[in-house]
Each structure stands twice: as C-alpha cells, then as structure tokens.
Computed example of a mutant assay.
Amino acid sequence: MQGDPHGYFHIVLLCLCWYVISSFASQVTKKILTIHPLPLFLGEFQFAYTALLAALCCIIAKGSLSFHSRFPEGTLPQYHDKSHPQHQRTIFTRPTRHVLLTVLPLSIFQFLGKYFGHTATSLVPISTVASIKTLSPVCIIILQKVFKVSNSQLGSQVYLSLACIILGVWIIVSEDNKVYSRVSSLADSNSQQYSSYGILCAISSMIIFASQNIYGKGVFTYKQENANRLDRAVAPLPLYTEKKGTLTVPESIKYDKLTLMMYISLVGFSLSFGCFMSLEFSTVYDEIRQFGIGCIPWYLFFINGTFHFLQAMITYQLLGEVSTLTYSIANIMKRIVVVTVSWLAAGGQITANQLIGLLLNVFGLFFYERYNSKKKKEHYLQQINHHKTLPKNKF
C-alpha cells in the first residue's frame, strides 16, 4: 500500500465507515435500552443475529470466489484454494471438541461483558461508558501483574500515559455527572438518571473484556511467516499440535475469524439463555401478549445487530491491511468520535472540562499504544535472533 493513493483512500474510507457505524450503533443501543431496558434480551438477539450473518457470509463465500477474495486471509474458511493446507470442503467447520473448548471461555467473557455493558448503557451516558472503556490498558497491566502473565518492566512513559488516561476518564465521568444531573433535573420523570450502579457496570464490562484480551493472547498464537510481516496487525488464530510417533508435528490448524465469531455467538447464546428465561422472558412475554409483537422495536434490533456485525468485519479488514500502530491510532480516533457524537446527540453544550478530559485520554492512549507497539517489535526480534542461534536438528 506504500505510495499507492488508492490504497490510502481505501483505508481512510474504511476508517470513516467504521467511525460512522460505531457512532450510530452506540446511539441505537442507547435508544433500544431506553425503550426496553432489557440487556439480556438485547444480548440474546445480538448473539443469534451475529451467528446468522456469519453463517450467511460463509455460504456466500463458498459459492463466490470474488466475495471470498475481498477479505484478508484468515477472515473466512479456505474454500477455493485446494492446495492450501487448510482447504475446507464443507461450508462450516465441524464443531469439534477443540473448537468448543477454545470458544467457551471467550463466549463466557462475551456474555458477561455484553450484560454489564448493556446495563451500563441503559443507566449512564454513552460518553461515560465509552470513556471508561479506554481504561482497559490500565486494567490489562494490573491483571498481568496480579496473575504474573507478564514480567516486563514498565518505563516512565507508560506510567505517564496511564496517569493521563485515568485523569482524563475521571474528568469526563465527573463532568458527565454534572451535565446530565442538570438535564435530568429540568426534564420529565422519564429522563435518564445518572447512576453510580451504571458506572460500576461499565467498569465491570471493561474488566471482563480486558480479561478476555489477556486470555486470548494466552490461548491464541500467531506465527509470523517472515520479518516483513512484523508490523502487520493480523489477529491471532489458534495453532494446535499433534504427536505423530515420537515427534511433535505442528498441524497449523487455524480457525478463521468468521468460524470463531459464529461459534462464540452460538455458545454465548446458549450460556445466557437460562438467565434470560429467568429474569427477562416474563417481561417480554407480557408485553407481547398485551400489546402484540409490534411493541418491540424490531427494526432497531436489526439495525443494531447489523451495525454490530459490520463493525467486526471492518475491524478484520483493517487488521489485515494496516500496521499495528496504524490500527491502534485508528481505534483511538474511533473512541474520540463515539464520545464526541454522544455529546452532540445528547443536545448539551460540550464543556471545556469535557474537552480537557478527552484530550488527556487521547494523549495517554496514543503514547501507550506507541510504547506497546515498540515492545512487541523488540520482543519479536529477540525471538528471531534466539531462533537463529539454536542448533538445527537433523532427522
């Protein structure tokens, strides 16, 4: 893509679509949960609809080489290249024990993260929820130290960036509290009430998704093919091994992202089904029986589910086309857009303190991501050098 203006335009267009869809998705989620504050019901619909769309994409990709080739390798099952070691004849990957055990913890994280995230969205402003999500680097570092996942030493730059993130989030949340308390005191009784429980749910959702990231790094591995792909932000995929005789031979079994998305959604739906039936089904049933099935804003549910799926697909596309640092910066910009749009959509005037909090947040995230990208490169280069110094085995 270097030096190619069409390539740059393609990435910029993808990012703009990503920002617009993410902003609209947040607003639609807020509207749904304002009308129907049923986070489990929304989560169940998202799980089912995401699995359906993922399956549909696999079906289309199986019959259309042009559609399949539009996505980076690893996004869809390898249907068309018969010489490929992961060539797949069937449309869907068979649900083996390995697949289910791999997605089970991720499905649990998704179920709990969605529940707390949706609950928070129903109680507090979108800007509060979105800004609290930016605390994930702080949470990841704390969890890594507590569970001894990483022993790397943190420099002063990291501590400064984390301090900026924490201070920025604190300013945004405090200012949101003041602004929305004034708005709710002047509006009618149906106005959104700022809730400390909502903040607690937002923090819980952030911790759960941060834990999911740590687990994903431990379970999923990605083997770089060459140094030229060092800075490529390809999402990690599972790599299993199988013993043959006395040797351990890598099978390089990679599950594509659509297959993982489909199974994570199906297992997540199954895990949350019992909670939904116990806590929210009676409410949904009573509403439908009293007012008819049209009382549920299904069009908003389908729009929300479609946006949710499109966000994931755009993320996969960007991950396969840009560097880690570029993707991280684009993700930071997305958070800025979501927070800013939520302030504008709320109809209130953006205060100076909110802008200061947002700038501190951006500053901290930017320098943390730069430091993180640099450390990943150094670690990879150390692995390459170590591998070169090992004696070659002869069989």
Score class of each variant (00 low, 15 high):
Leu247Tyr: 15
Thr248Val: 11
Val249Ile: 14
Pro250Asn: 07
Pro250Gly: 03
Glu251Cys: 11
Glu251Val: 15
Ser252Tyr: 09
Ile253Trp: 04
Ile253Ser: 11
Ile253His: 04
Ile253Tyr: 01
Ile253Gln: 08
Lys254Gln: 11
Tyr255His: 14
Tyr255Pro: 08
Tyr255Asp: 05
Asp256Pro: 07
Lys257Pro: 13
Thr259Asn: 15
Thr259Lys: 15
Leu260Trp: 03
Met261Cys: 09
Met261Asn: 14
Met261Val: 13
Met261Ile: 10
Met261Tyr: 10
Met261Ser: 15
Met262Ile: 12
Met262Ser: 13
Met262Asp: 04
Met262Ala: 06
Tyr263Val: 13
Ile264Asp: 08
Ile264Pro: 09
Ser265Leu: 07
Leu266Gln: 08
Val267Lys: 00
Val267Ser: 01
Gly268Ala: 10
Gly268Pro: 00
Phe269Pro: 01
Phe269Cys: 03
Phe269Tyr: 09
Ser270Thr: 05
Ser272Tyr: 00
Ser272Pro: 00
Phe273Glu: 01
Phe276Pro: 10
Met277Ile: 05
Met277Asn: 06
Leu279His: 13
Glu280Pro: 14
Glu280Leu: 11
Ser282Gln: 13
Ser282Glu: 12
Ser282Phe: 09
Thr283Cys: 04
Thr283Trp: 02
Val284Met: 12
Glu287Cys: 08
Ile288Lys: 03
Ile288Asn: 03
Ile288Cys: 13
Ile288Pro: 02
Arg289Gln: 14
Arg289Cys: 05
Phe291Gly: 05
Phe291Ala: 03
Phe291Tyr: 09
Gly292Tyr: 06
Gly292Leu: 09
Gly292His: 02
Ile293Lys: 05
Ile293Arg: 07
Gly294Gln: 12
Ile296Thr: 10
Pro297Met: 02
Pro297Gln: 12
Trp298Leu: 00
Trp298Pro: 00
Trp298Phe: 02
Leu300Arg: 04
Leu300Tyr: 06
Phe302Glu: 02
Phe302His: 07
Phe302Ser: 03
Phe302Gln: 02
Ile303Ser: 15
Gly305Ser: 05
Gly305Val: 05
Gly305Glu: 09
Gly305Cys: 11
Thr306Lys: 02
Thr306Gln: 09
Thr306Asp: 09
Phe307Met: 12
His308Phe: 12
Phe309Val: 06
Phe309Gly: 11
Leu310Trp: 07
Leu310Phe: 14
Leu310Ile: 11
Gln311Pro: 07
Gln311Met: 13
Ile314Leu: 09
Ile314Val: 15
Tyr316Asp: 04
Tyr316Gln: 04
Gln317Asn: 03
Gln317Lys: 13
Leu318Met: 08
Leu318Arg: 02
Leu319Asn: 08
Leu319Thr: 07
Leu319Lys: 07
Gly320Asn: 06
Glu321Thr: 10
Thr324Pro: 00
Leu325Met: 08
Leu325Gln: 09
Leu325Arg: 10
Leu325Lys: 11
Thr326Ala: 11
Thr326Asn: 01
Thr326Tyr: 01
Tyr327Ser: 07
Ser328Asp: 15
Ser328Ile: 03
Ile329Asp: 03
Ile329Ser: 10
Ile329Pro: 01
Ala330Met: 14
Ala330Arg: 00
Ala330Glu: 00
